[in-house]
C-alpha cells in the first residue's frame, strides 16, 4: 500500500490550476475575491517501495477523487489570502486481493498568505518575486495510518515558499519556486510502530520536506488563455522506506518528480469567469505512488467592495 499524503498538499496548491494559488506569481488586486471550485481524479497501479517500482494486486488500482472549494482574497495591496478545504474519496478498483474499504471525508484546511515582495519592469519584460506562507491542519478525524487510502498525512504543516517569475513582453514566462515544508506529527490509532526500530507511541513524525518547481508558460489571446508546462520535485528530509510488500506509513521518506501541463481560460464575455484544466504525472519517486491526476476547475473573480470603490 502506498503513501499519498505528500501529494495531497501539492495537488491542492502547488501546480493545480493556473492562477490564484499560493504557488503562482499572480497577484490579485486588493478587494478582489476569487472563488475556485475544482474536481480532480487521480489513480495509480504502481508505486515505489523504497527505490523500486512495483505493482500490488492487494490494492490493485487506487483511485482518488477530490472536490476542492477554495477562496482567494486580495486583502490589501500586495497581499493575498487563501483558504481551501478538499473533500476526498479513495478506493481500490475491483478485483483486488486486499478487500479493504476505502476512505472518504474532509481532508486538511489550508490557510495561506501570499506577499509580493518585489516587482521590476524592464525593457524586455517584468520580474516578480513573491513569498507564501501556508498552514494546513486536518479538518476531520481521518486516519493517516491507513495507507494508501488515507486522505492525508494527518499532521499540521507549515510551508514557506519563495517564487520568482519573469514574464517576457512576448507573453512567455518562466517561474521557479522553492518550498520548505515543516510537518508535525500524525496520530495513529496504535501505540507501537516500527520505524527502523521500535516506537512506543501513537505519534508518528512526518518528515519535513523541500520542493523545487520549474514552470514554463505562455499567455495567448491578450492574456485570457494561459498554458503552462510544469515540473515539481519533492524530497523528504528524513524518514524510512516502505518495507517489502508492507503498507506505507506517515513516517516514510517520500520523494517524487512530477511533470504536468495546465491551461486556464477566462471567458471574455463573462467577466471574472474562468475555467482551468490540468494533468500531471509522477514520473519518478521513492515511497511514492506513480499517480496521474487530471483536474478541472472553475474560477470566478469579483470585487467585493465594487459599489463602494466605484
Amino acid at each position: 500500500m502506498l503513501k499519498l499524503n505528500l501529494t495531497i498538499t501539492f495537488l491542492l496548491f502547488a501546480v493545480g490550476l493556473v492562477g490564484q494559488t499560493p504557488s503562482d506569481a499572480i497577484m490579485m488586486e486588493s478587494k478582489v475575491v476569487c472563488i475556485l471550485f475544482e474536481y480532480n481524479y487521480g489513480q495509480f497501479d504502481q508505486y515505489w517501495e523504497g527505490p523500486s517500482i512495483r505493482e500490488n494486486q492487494t490494492i490493485a488500482t487506487v483511485k482518488r477523487n477530490t472536490v476542492l472549494p477554495m477562496m482567494a482574497v486580495g486583502v490589501v495591496k500586495n497581499l493575498n489570502l487563501f483558504v481551501g478545504l478538499p473533500y476526498i474519496k479513495t478506493e481500490s478498483s475491483d478485483p483486488n486481493g486486499g478487500k479493504f474499504a476505502g476512505a472518504s471525508g474532509l481532508q486538511d484546511l489550508t490557510v495561506a498568505v501570499k506577499y509580493k515582495a518585489f516587482e521590476k519592469k524592464t525593457a524586455r519584460g517584468e520580474l516578480r518575486v513573491l513569498g507564501t506562507v501556508s498552514f494546513s491542519t486536518p479538518a476531520s478525524n481521518y486516519l493517516p495510518d491507513y495507507m494508501p487510502y488515507s486522505l492525508g498525512a494527518g499532521a499540521p504543516e507549515l510551508a514557506y515558499r519563495a517564487i520568482g517569475q519573469y514574464t517576457f513582453n512576448s507573453g512567455f514566462y518562466v517561474r521557479g519556486a522553492g518550498t520548505y515544508l515543516w510537518k508535525g506529527y500524525a496520530k495513529a490509532e496504535r501505540e507501537y510502530y516500527y520505524n527502523n526500530g521500535s516506537f512506543y507511541t501513537s505519534w508518528m513524525d512526518v518528515p519535513n520536506a523541500i520542493t523545487a518547481e520549474g514552470i514554463f508558460g505562455k499567455k495567448f489571446l491578450d492574456g485570457s488563455l494561459q498554458v503552462e508546462l510544469n515540473y515539481l520535485k519533492t524530497q523528504s528530509l528524513s524518514g524510512d522506506d516502505i518495507r517489502a510488500y508492507n503498507s506505507p506509513q506517515p513516517t516514510n521518506k517520500v520523494n517524487m518528480d512530477r511533470v504536468g501541463i495546465s491551461a486556464h481560460y477566462y471567458f471574455p464575455k463573462i467577466e471574472g469567469l474562468g475555467i482551468g484544466l490540468y494533468h500531471h504525472s509522477v514520473i519518478n519517486g521513492r515511497n511514492a505512488p506513480k499517480i496521474s491526476t487530471s483536474g478541472i476547475g472553475l474560477t470566478y473573480f469579483f470585487n467585493y467592495l465594487k459599489r463602494e470603490s466605484l
Partner: peptide, 17 residues
C-alpha cells in the same frame, strides 16, 4: 509566531520504556 509555535511541539518519541 507560527514557526516557533510548532517548533516548540517537536518532541522526543519514546523508543524504549
Amino acid at each position: 509566531l507560527i514557526l516557533s509555535g510548532f517548533v516548540a511541539c517537536e518532541k522526543e518519541l519514546p523508543t524504549f520504556l
